[in-house]
Design a protein around this nucleic acid. Structure first.
Lengths: 234, 234
DNA sequence: TCCAACTCCGAACGACGTTCGAATAATACC
DNA sequence: GGTATTATTCGAACGTCGTTCGGAGTTGGA
């Protein structure tokens, strides 16, 4: 049972997600393929167990050092590194699997990590999911672009798609590339993370200036209040 | 050729991504399965064409009304709605496909949408990818959680995974749920978007106060400068 | 008219997830 | 110890998948 999950994890980390099949897992365990169905209803459940097994390695946010911002930044970087080390997690799990116990434990810890910020529970959950979503989304974009693909590489692969890529039709993009911008580069992660945490800091500062110590009772359950919503007029 | 992509799109939008197979597409077109390979090297290229076809419907960011923030918010909401209407996009495209012409055109337009912000091209690209990543990641989380799953639903599906979920072991999470917080609710999207845009606004305000009009020459190609990096000490 | 190039596609190959049912091992009860 | 019950193993098969092969049909220019 745990051996099945372990075998599947090793298989995927060495051969990639495409190589994950019940037959391969069974072969690695020296058992018949049909034997796996004694312990698992099907492949989907195996995938769910694999995902929760990965979550078991994640440090608990509320045990990290520093203030809320340090904690959030630290687990965001942990997530980012985890997606780099287990890119198959991004390809798997697209469709509805139940959150496993490790996932729930992590979520519980993340809520605690925002103690003392003056945010309501609903807001804390929203902040956590925002950062989580940001990391996951950026990791997906980065992974899909092939890790670190050069513009020439993009052009070559684009050519395979039918018509060749004519960069003259994209002047702003061309200018950016010529200026040295690298799309989906890895260091872009830190940039966006700082922006997102800056935005959370704005909210928390707003909450703090309107001093009210009670944690929860401010109409919790809703997220609709104006924050700093105005842009910059030219 | 375009008919193949159209048939595949209709198939997926009515039957779901799991029903997408070369045989089904061929059947819908009343041709033999092997005929498809006259026009496409394989299923992966069909998927790439499907993705770029969806991008063709996206409005161009730089043509949207308002200042940079209004433009960014508008296309973020467009993206969010597109992922809701075409959830298969999230499940597809995990692995390396080349960006199609519509994707490049959109990217070019998004860079233009940040004209007049004082940001370098590298920074603009980073902002765009941050917002893009945020939307995509949150849409994935929302989609994976089953759209809008109640805690009871989570508990039921968790039970199917092996051991039943004991919420007493997750006190902070339990408290949040009791207070009315709904994990992965749809309105959480707006909350995180405002935070992210607030963070971008902080950066832009900083750039503006250090007035320098030249757009590009400030050592472009690097993203490493301190923004507003300090948290709030308790 | 003839030939080359392009289009169509039935049949087959190997791999997949999953089911069935019979054989075998382990356990419980008397 | 003997027997009934339950759990485990798994070879074989079903239906589906992506893709390849080779030949038949069609088309267009010389």
């Amino acid at each position: 049972m745990d051996a099945i999950v372990a075998a599947a994890l090793e298989l995927v980390s060495t051969q990639g997600l495409a190589a994950l099949s019940m037959r391969q897992v069974a072969t690695k365990l020296d058992v018949g393929t049909a034997s796996l169905y004694t312990y698992l209803p099907g492949k989907a459940e195996l995938a769910a167990l694999m995902l929760d097994a990965v979550m078991a390695d994640a440090p608990l946010p509320h045990e990290l050092p520093g203030d809320w911002r340090a904690k959030l930044a630290a687990w965001a970087r942990d997530d980012w590194a985890a997606y780099r080390d287990h890119p198959w997690v991004l390809e798997l799990a697209a469709v509805g699997a139940a959150p496993g116990p490790h996932m729930l434990r992590w979520l519980d810890s993340a809520i605690q990590a925002l103690d003392g910020t003056g945010l309501s529970d609903t807001e804390r959950l929203a902040v956590i999911e925002s950062v989580d979503g940001y990391v996951r989304g950026l990791a997906t974009l980065h992974h899909r672009s092939g890790g670190d693909a050069s513009p020439a590489e993009v052009e070559r692969r684009g050519a395979a798609l039918g018509e060749l890529v004519d960069f003259d039709r994209y002047p702003a993009l061309q200018r950016a590339l010529r200026a040295g911008a690298k799309p989906y580069a890895a260091d872009q992660f830190e940039f966006g993370l700082e922006r997102l945490l800056d935005g959370v800091a704005v909210l928390i500062r707003g909450r703090r200036s309107g001093r009210r110590q009670r944690n929860d009772a401010d109409g919790s359950g809703t997220l609709r209040e104006r924050g700093t919503t105005s842009g910059d007029p030219p």
